[in-house]
Simulated scan of single mutants.
Amino acid sequence: MKGEIVCGILVTAGCFTNVAQAQGSVTLYGTIDTGIEYANVGGVTTVRTDSSNVIPSRWGLTGQEPLWGGTSVVFKLENGFNSSTGTALQNGALFGREAWVGLKSDLGKLQIGVNYSALDTTFLIYTMGFGWGNASSNFIFTPVLRTNNSVRYESPKIYGFSMIATYALGANGSATLPRTFGNSASVDLTYATGGFSASADFMTQVYSPAKTLTATSSTATGNYSVFAAKYDFHFLAVGGIFQMYRGGAGALNYTTNANVNNNFYEVVVNVPINISNLLFSFGQYKDLANSAGNATSYGVRYVYPISRRTLLYAGVTEIVNGPAASFTDNSTAAAGVPIGAPGRNVTAGTIGMTHQF
């Protein structure tokens, strides 16, 4: 009798498990990207291991549950980590890369939590990787890429047009910060047909001119405009991106979310070679208040897949900094070799491996 009861419980549990599997799904995934970098900064050489050069080292959970009429609950939790040290990125947050839940249907997808801004999506697409060696990766102001306490909407594609919109509450009701500090909004409009695509983005983000933040500190708003285009000729793909930032005059002494008024652009050519590809990047940064803060970036990156899940890569990059510029060779998830002092140029090379699971 006892054995029959146990069997009954197991059968019942199995039934519930099957029902749960039929209703929804959860996927564990991840990437490990580790490389070795050699860099010369102002005559000083450094050799070190690196993480996240071509693809961010990360692991995560994603899933969905069907509801009704083509609508599903969707979610994603993603952790970023340094594969060289095993430490968490994003200031140690468990799921600092993405953490959201939402709804998906024929009307689009709505996500609430930790989301990427519309600008981040545009840079990823039009720089064809947004990784080690890309000028935009070296010049971008990272607080505009990911937003906490945010809502993100992705529209369906209609006659080639689509839209992404985000809104984030930076302070999120904090009693120790200005009420609007860190608030941001971004929107992307994209048109794509055949091998051609083009996007126009706009983003606002609130910062403060105060060096020490309090609830009564004053605030100001910075405005980003991004324009991008790409065409795939099959034998090669050409992409370009141009960013303008306004609203940050004299922002060098400002706090988090502050930027200086600037323009930068990048031109990318990606050449497929059998199953591998070779990427060339060139870009320039212009500090509108101080030309000594200008910089130029050159990069070449080669990626070769040795299996469906594993890539080998190698790259060379050079950044020529003006006397007041401090740009370095950023990866997809972290800053590169420290400059030490403004005006030092960076010449670096890397080789590495990426495995996805």
Rank of each mutant, 00 (worst) to 15 (best):
G108E: 10
F123G: 01
N183E: 10
Y116C: 01
S199D: 13
D232A: 09
S225M: 13
K230F: 01
G86A: 04
D120Q: 13
P342G: 10
S155I: 03
A324T: 09
S105V: 03
Y265Q: 06
T190V: 08
A334K: 11
R344Q: 11
A200W: 13
Y38I: 10
V320K: 15
Y231C: 03
N40C: 02
G239T: 07
I319S: 07
F357D: 10
T204H: 06
G283F: 04
N259H: 05
G69R: 10
M163V: 15
G113D: 06
N183K: 06
G42A: 11
K104I: 00
G248N: 08
A200S: 14
P178Y: 10
Y167K: 08
G336I: 11
T221K: 10
D33P: 00
G133T: 11
A93S: 08
T12S: 07
T310K: 04
G92L: 00
I241N: 14
A348C: 06
Y126T: 06
F282R: 10
K104Q: 12
P305R: 04
F235V: 10
S199L: 05
W132S: 09
R308T: 12
D33F: 03
S136P: 03
Q90H: 07
V303R: 12
A324Y: 05
Q205P: 01
S208W: 10
R48Y: 01
S218V: 01
I351Y: 02
G3C: 03
G182I: 10
L213G: 10
T71G: 01
V316R: 01
T332V: 13
K157A: 14
Y313V: 06
A118T: 04
N345V: 09
Y153D: 02
A88F: 08
N148V: 04
V73Q: 09
N270T: 13
H355F: 07
G239Y: 10
